[in-house]
Write a protein that binds this DNA or RNA. Structure first.
Lengths: 304, 304
DNA sequence: CCAATTATACTCGATTCGAGTACATTAGGG
DNA sequence: CCCTAATGTACTCGAATCGAGTATAATTGG
């Protein structure tokens, strides 16, 4: 090692790039994890980066709240892309590199989610193989077959297919949304119509990144409560976590974990039963937020 | 919610920003976690983002390898900053927003780390309160005192101090490097000379981000091996993990966890003992990489 | 009154994990 | 040669966690 890196105090013209923000806005309604989309469900909301704000975070927060009318409870930076060939379908002659900074935002359940709100779509329409709440979706074996054929005699590829899709004794890992999508991309399966809706450019890949991150996050951080109404029953909370993780949870274990972590407290009220015994209502304990945000809030999962 | 966000197909001039890459390059030598610095240890290596490469990742990788002469085993994007007032000390008249994309890179132990390599510095020189391997550093109680005074009668602040610095029965959490630094920043303690070396601009904060991320990562991912030589003893491996986490590890438990995860295999050779019984040499099992990268590789920690 | 549905409490066993103890093997000094 | 220091290696134990199953309580609707 002879050369020592020099700090370049000035910036070359090549250091100038158009910057764009992309938001993955998530809400859960009717036990479905929904994401805000534009252009007929083919694009994630995005816009140019305005330098009038103090930081990226506040810039995006203001923009989202202006557009949706809802406050964003939780906002987290995901990833910054700058690939030249990001949007192969785009008709733009412009081929210069664009910097795209993606964010994950959580907003509370939309009140009165009527039929006239087509912009929020269940993310399982884009990734139908990811919903394992009731059963293993029919897409999984069909994708697995085509992936196995694609892997051929390559043992490493075959092992990767097994691991990512829970084949041959491997267990399904719900966090690997992005890795599964990328494997399918390599095998040329992402544009097969029966394997989920398309999106413009790499928006579907960015969405997969967001789902992966959120599924990982809810296991050690109480971000779920950013998606819940003020008061809720424990089953509602469980259904929300199930919607996000795409897994079925063991009810007694879920309750045990929730109350031994002291994340919630009773409101004293009781839900108007939709059938069956009425449930107690709980609210999130904001006092404990700081501490729990820093430590971990594990969630109990279970198979099928 | 009346307004629906519009996708802006074009980019305003405000969407143009200078882009810069910042690298946190980490190596472990002499049981010290070291970071590559420039300008007398006051800056992290950085440079303008060149659009001649295919992606950010490959752009930065090429740049690092050209500068250091060492291949980068592991490279991960950390965070993208775009705050206007990033470098308050800078004499630049230029106040326009700059986008800084930070990366964490791991390089193998430098061979023959003589005295003539001043650019690699132990990160504990910047964060002396973070090294809990032998004992709790003397800085911790002194910082704690000043933070408690700063918190005053505010119970939330006091609780935060306790939690972050392991006071009043709370246990030290080694991952919260960034949160501790930010708390000290709020309390105006980061520029106290006895509390660590300074860095230009927010470089020290970025370094804290990288340490936090790496300390979290080694718990569930086998990235440590990117810092190890080809063959190593189990104690060497343990010392490296200890250097990074700043914690003392329980030897029997460490070995148990390592071999029951089947991350390593014996080379058959035996180390030339530096004293004491000679140890068997191991190498990382690259075949298992894919699988372990995806699942988790927990590490056993211990207190005091 | 009964069935269906939901809520809530409890038990059991496997696994993990922190912590401690014991023993083995080498180098080096008296 | 023996003793000590330093390192390597193998066990054990108990607490905590966690997946899974079972049982019981309360309510609605026929």
């Amino acid at each position: 090692m002879t050369g020592i890196a020099q700090y370049t105090g000035t910036f070359l013209p090549s250091g100038l790039a158009p910057a764009e923000l992309i938001a993955i806005l998530v809400a859960v309604t009717d036990n479905q994890p929904r994401v805000m989309t534009l252009r007929g469900g083919e694009a994630l909301p995005s816009g140019p980066f305005e330098s009038s704000h103090r930081s990226l975070q506040s810039s995006l927060r203001a923009w989202i709240e202006a557009q949706t009318g809802h406050p964003v409870g939780y906002l987290e930076q995901l990833y910054t892309f700058a690939d030249r060939d990001r949007d192969p379908r785009s008709g733009d002659v412009e081929t210069s590199q664009r910097i795209s900074i993606s964010y994950l935002g959580l907003v509370r359940e939309q009140d009165a989610a009527g039929a006239g709100r087509p912009s929020w779509r269940s993310w399982y329409r884009y990734f139908p193989w990811e919903d394992h709440r009731d059963c293993i979706p029919e897409e999984v074996p069909r994708i697995a077959d085509r992936l196995t054929a694609w892997a051929g005699a390559d043992p490493l590829k075959a092992q990767r297919v097994d691991y990512l899709f829970g084949l041959n004794g491997k267990t399904w890992n719900e966090e690997l949304v992005l890795q599964r999508y990328e494997l399918m991309y390599e095998a040329g399966l992402v544009d097969v119509p029966e394997f989920g809706l398309p999106m413009a450019g790499d928006n579907r890949r960015i969405l997969a990144t967001g789902i992966s991150r959120l599924r990982a996050k809810i296991k050690y951080s109480p971000v779920v409560f950013e998606l819940m109404p003020e008061s809720f029953t424990l089953l509602q909370l469980q259904r929300t976590v199930e919607a996000l993780s795409g897994l079925h949870l063991h009810k007694p274990n879920f309750r045990r974990q929730i109350d031994q972590q002291e994340l919630v407290e009773e409101t004293g009220e009781i839900s108007s039963g939709t059938g069956g015994r009425p449930a107690r209502l709980f609210r999130y304990r904001p006092a404990i937020l700081e501490a729990r945000m820093l430590s971990g809030a594990r969630l109990p999962l279970s198979k099928s």
